[in-house]
């Protein structure tokens, strides 16, 4: 609703065109600032609430904290088992990201630089598999993982994540690898390198930006994933952070400050990754979008 209002206000100003410096620009900045407020305030709210103790929150829910405390973070760490769950998430996600790199690099190289019959078919098959929505396969997958004894085991979720990330990753890397001039490949071949060495020594270094982007992108969505994590790693000892957070609501609904502290802790790794790699990511995200 608020955004609609902004849109209409801007439409009025647009009659001045893009040439007018001061006022037009100020209007634009105002609009952008207001939208930024809506994106930043909720996070601020979480932080502000997390540093209040329970009584202070009940007394004054929306104001600034009078005597900020860090006890909630400590409590969330233990009660909400953040310390335990974050470790599970880390193991699963890091392994999945690395494996995804390996799988997609190999597939990408094969689809871009190797000549073999059925190459086009393979490419479309991989891409086509993206159309099978997760919901469709979730039940047989669940039953299959039970039979394979992978339920409540890290590899169960890891393999699922790698599979889910494979088509997009392959597509991204195939496009990127295609941009590598064949002369480089041929030169390496003349030097006697086999394809594995070419991939490792030539392609991967050149495709670093794409790899970094893919890695960050995978990290983000895998860290935040809920449905498969909820179903595959159910046991408390292997539960991931997001599932733990989702269930904070059940047990600790009163204690909003505690909940907020837990939420913040859960978001921290992702926020850190985002802050550090932000420019990389925003540039790289579009590698696949624009032809």
């Amino acid at each position: 609703m608020r955004d609609e209002g902004r849109k209409h206000r801007h439409a009025r100003r647009r009659g001045w065109g893009f040439g007018r410096p001061k006022i037009g620009r100020t209007g634009i900045v105002l609009v952008l600032v207001s939208v930024s407020v809506t994106t930043i305030y909720p996070l601020l709210f979480v932080i502000i609430t997390a540093v209040k103790d329970r009584k202070a929150y009940i007394l004054d829910r929306y104001g600034l904290p009078t005597s900020p405390t860090l006890t909630n973070f400590a409590a969330a760490w233990t009660n909400a088992k953040v310390g335990q769950y974050v470790w599970n998430s880390a193991i699963v996600v890091v392994t999945a990201v690395v494996l995804s790199w390996i799988v997609c690099c190999m597939a990408g190289y094969a689809l871009s630089h190797l000549r073999f019959p059925g190459r086009r078919a393979a490419f479309f098959a991989i891409l086509g598999s993206m159309m099978i929505a997760p919901q469709v396969i979730i039940i047989p997958l669940y039953a299959m993982l039970i039979k394979m004894d992978l339920l409540n085991e890290y590899p169960g979720l890891i393999l699922v994540y790698v599979t889910l990330s494979a088509p997009f990753g392959t597509y991204l890397l195939t496009s990127y690898f295609k941009g590598v001039p064949t002369e480089l490949v041929e030169a390496a071949q003349v030097d006697g390198a086999n394809h594995a060495q070419i991939l490792w020594r030539v392609m991967v270094p050149i495709a670093r930006p794409a790899l970094v982007t893919l890695g960050i992108f995978n990290f983000l969505w895998m860290w935040n994933e809920l449905l498969f994590a909820l179903l595959i790693l159910q046991d408390d000892s292997v539960r991931t952070l997001m599932v733990g957070v989702a269930n904070l609501r059940g047990q600790y609904t009163t204690n909003i400050p505690l909940l907020s502290a837990g939420l913040f802790l859960a978001a921290t790794p992702v926020l850190m990754v985002f802050m550090v790699f932000q420019t990389q990511l925003t540039k790289g995200m579009t590698l696949g979008a624009v032809k």
Partner: peptide, 25 residues
């Protein structure tokens, strides 16, 4: 060697996709 390596390089992804996507589908 192109064909050999293609098989090699494409095996992991097809193995994963078939096991965890196509078969369940």
């Amino acid at each position: 060697s192109g064909v050999v390596f293609a098989c090699l390089f494409l095996t992991p992804i097809f193995l994963l996709l078939i096991t965890f996507r196509v078969v369940p589908g």
